[in-house]
Design a protein around this nucleic acid. Structure first.
Lengths: 212, 212
DNA sequence: ATTCAGATGTTTACACTGTCAACAATAAGA
DNA sequence: TCTTATTGTTGACAGTGTAAACATCTGAAT
C-alpha cells in the first residue's frame, strides 16, 4: 500500500487532489483554480482526477461540503465552551464563525460564492450547508428555553444571527474593514455582533459587549 | 452617426458591450461569462472590445461600478421617502437594497463576489463601493441627530446595518430562503432587518416591525 | 499460481477561452 | 485633400475542461 517504489497507483489520489486543490485555492482564489495545475503539483496526468471526480464542479462541491462541516465544528465547539450563558455562547459562536472566514477566505467564498448552486446536481450540498445553521439554531433554542431571547420563531432568531454573521464575514474578507488594527477590528466585529444580540434579547443589554 | 449603412464602426460599442455583458451575466452567471460570446451577440469580432477595455477584469470592474451606483440610487431614493421617521427610513433603505440584490442576483454577486479585488488595479472601485455605504451612513447620522439611535460611532451603526443587509441579501440570492412564499419572504426579511434596528434604537421597539 | 475483471492512470485530441500582434477601414483635423 | 488617430478584423498562441481510447496495476476466483 505504502510502497513508494511503483508510483503508478498513488494510493489515495482523491484526497490528495482535494488537499492540493484547497492549497491552490487559498493562494490564488477559486476563480482561477486550474485542475491541470493541481495535477502538475501532484506529478500526475491532467486527466487522472476524472477517475475520482465527475468534473470540476463535483470536486468544488466536495471541497465546499468539507468546509461546511469544519465550519460547523469550530462554531459548535466555541459555543459549547460557555455553558449556560446565552449571550456569551452566541458571541463566541459568531466570532469563531467569522474567524473561520478570516483564516480561509477563499474557501469560505467557495462555500457561499454561488458558483456551485447553478449547476450542482448533488443534492447533498444544501443538506450539509444546514449543519452550520443547525449549530446556531440550537443556541437559539437554548436561549429561548432560558428566557433570554424574545419569543419569536427559533428559526427566525437563528436566521437573523446567521445573516448578521455571514454579512460581517463577507464584508471582512472583501476588505471592507481593512482600515483597522487587529485590536480595533476585534472590537468592531464584537460590537456589530452585539447589536444584533441586543435585538433578540429579553433583557436590556448594554450598548457594547462585555470585555472578553 | 446613426448611419446604419456602414456597419464597420458601431457607434457606441463600449456601452453596447456592457449592456450585452450584463444580460449574459444575468442569464448564465458571472463565472461563465465569455467575452467571445458577447462579441458574437453583437455580431462583432472577438477582439473588438480590446479597443474599449483593457481586459476582462476591466470590463467587469466597470460593470461592478455601475451596479454600485445604481444600488446607491435605489436605496437612497427609498430612504428619502420617509421624511423624519428614522426607523421607517432605514427599513425602506434595507428592503430596497435587498430587492436590488433579489432582482439582479448575478450583478450583485459580481459586485461583492471578490473576483475583482484580487487583480483590480483600478483604484476607483473601492471609492464607488463606498457610495452605497454613505447612503446608510447618512441615515445613521440623521437618526443620531434625532436621538433615535444609541450614541455609538456613526460608522459603527452604519456598518452594523450594512453587514446585516448584505448578509440577508447574500443568503437570499444563494437560495437559503427558498422555502417561503413571497408574502412569507417579505415578512421574514423585514423581521430580520428589524432585529438589528432594535439593537441600535434608544427606544424600546416592539419585537416585530409595524405593518408596511 | 494463474487468470481475468475492475479500478486507476496516461495519451491524444477537441472545442473553447482570453489576449497579443499585425493589418484594414473609417472618421476627423490640418 | 492628405494625414493621422480611432476603431474594427484576422490570425495566432498558450491555457483550459473534458471525452475516448489505451495502458497498467490490484485483487479475487478459479
Amino acid at each position: 500500500m505504502t510502497s513508494n517504489k511503483t508510483q503508478y497507483h498513488h494510493g489515495d489520489l482523491a484526497s490528495a487532489f482535494m488537499d492540493a486543490a484547497i492549497k491552490r485555492i487559498a493562494q490564488e482564489g477559486v476563480e482561477k483554480l486550474s485542475l491541470r495545475a493541481v495535477a502538475r503539483d501532484l506529478g500526475v496526468s491532467q486527466t487522472a482526477l476524472y477517475r475520482h471526480f465527475d468534473d470540476k464542479t463535483h470536486l468544488l462541491t466536495l471541497l465546499a461540503q468539507q468546509g461546511f462541516s469544519r465550519l460547523a465544528q469550530v462554531s459548535s465547539d466555541a459555543a459549547s465552551q460557555h455553558g449556560d450563558d446565552t449571550f456569551a455562547a452566541i458571541m463566541a459562536l459568531g466570532m469563531a464563525y467569522i474567524e473561520f472566514a478570516q483564516y480561509h477566505p477563499e474557501h469560505y467564498r467557495l462555500m457561499f460564492g454561488g458558483m456551485l448552486k447553478r449547476d450542482c446536481k448533488d443534492d447533498a450540498l444544501p443538506e450539509i450547508r444546514m449543519t452550520s445553521f443547525d449549530v446556531i439554531l440550537q443556541q437559539a433554542n437554548l436561549g429561548l428555553a432560558r428566557g433570554d431571547l424574545i419569543q419569536l420563531e427559533p428559526r427566525l432568531l437563528a436566521r437573523s444571527c446567521w445573516a448578521k454573521v455571514h454579512g460581517i464575514a463577507m464584508l471582512l474578507i472583501d476588505g471592507f474593514y481593512a482600515d483597522n488594527s487587529p485590536a480595533q477590528l476585534n472590537r468592531l466585529l464584537r460590537d456589530m455582533l452585539w447589536i444584533n444580540l441586543r435585538g433578540i434579547s429579553t433583557q436590556l443589554l448594554p450598548e457594547t459587549p462585555p470585555a472578553i
